[in-house]
Measured scan of single mutants.
Amino acid sequence: MKVMIRKTATGHSAYVAKKDLEELIVEMENPALWGGKVTLANGWQLELPAMAADTPLPITVEARKL
């Protein structure tokens, strides 16, 4: 699914347009965010693609819901 990742004042957030859902990312498998699992505030887990740590945000990526 397409997910937009952006930086907020409190960390990172994910927006899933198909579900009209925006949630804070509360847990990251990798400190650089990319190439691992993230957990959203509502409990969803997404697998993000591997990208460079300095990838500019906001960005829309293809993520997989676990």
Results as ranks from 00 to 15, higher is better:
Met1Ser: 04
Met1Phe: 14
Lys2Tyr: 13
Lys2Pro: 09
Lys2Thr: 14
Val3Lys: 01
Met4Leu: 12
Met4Ser: 10
Met4Arg: 11
Ile5Val: 08
Lys7Asp: 04
Lys7Thr: 06
Lys7Phe: 07
Lys7Gly: 06
Lys7Met: 10
Thr8Trp: 06
Thr8Pro: 00
Thr8Arg: 08
Ala9Asp: 12
Ala9Gln: 11
Ala9Thr: 11
Thr10Glu: 13
Gly11His: 05
His12Asn: 05
His12Gln: 04
Ser13Val: 13
Ser13Tyr: 15
Ala14Asp: 01
Tyr15Ile: 11
Ala17Arg: 08
Ala17Ile: 15
Lys18Ser: 15
Lys18Phe: 15
Lys19Ile: 15
Lys19Ser: 15
Lys19Pro: 10
Asp20Pro: 04
Leu21Gln: 11
Glu22Val: 09
Glu23Gly: 05
Glu23Cys: 15
Leu24Trp: 08
Ile25Asn: 00
Glu27Asn: 10
Glu27Lys: 11
Glu27His: 13
Glu27Ser: 13
Met28Ser: 13
Met28Asn: 08
Met28Pro: 00
Glu29Phe: 05
Asn30Leu: 09
Asn30Pro: 03
Asn30Val: 08
Asn30Ala: 07
Pro31Gln: 10
Pro31Ser: 09
Pro31Met: 08
Ala32Ser: 13
Leu33Thr: 03
Gly35Asp: 06
Gly36Asp: 02
Gly36Lys: 03
Lys37Arg: 13
Lys37Tyr: 12
Lys37Asp: 03
Lys37Gln: 08
Val38Leu: 02
Thr39Tyr: 07
Thr39Ala: 04
Leu40Asp: 00
Leu40Pro: 01
Ala41Asp: 01
Ala41Thr: 06
Gly43Leu: 02
Gly43Ser: 02
Trp44Thr: 05
Trp44Arg: 00
Trp44Glu: 05
Gln45Ile: 15
Leu46Asp: 01
Leu46Pro: 01
Leu46Ala: 00
Glu47Gln: 13
Glu47Thr: 09
Leu48Tyr: 01
Leu48Gly: 01
Pro49Asn: 01
Pro49Val: 04
Ala50Trp: 15
Ala50Asn: 12
Met51Leu: 12
Met51Ala: 04
Ala53Leu: 10
Ala53Asn: 11
Ala53Thr: 10
Asp54Gln: 07
Thr55Asn: 02
Pro56Ile: 11
Pro56Trp: 07
Leu57His: 02
Leu57Cys: 04
Ile59Arg: 06
Thr60Ile: 12
Thr60Tyr: 11
Thr60Ser: 08
Glu62Gln: 12
Glu62Leu: 14
Ala63Leu: 08
Arg64Leu: 12
Lys65Glu: 11
Lys65Ser: 12
Lys65Met: 15
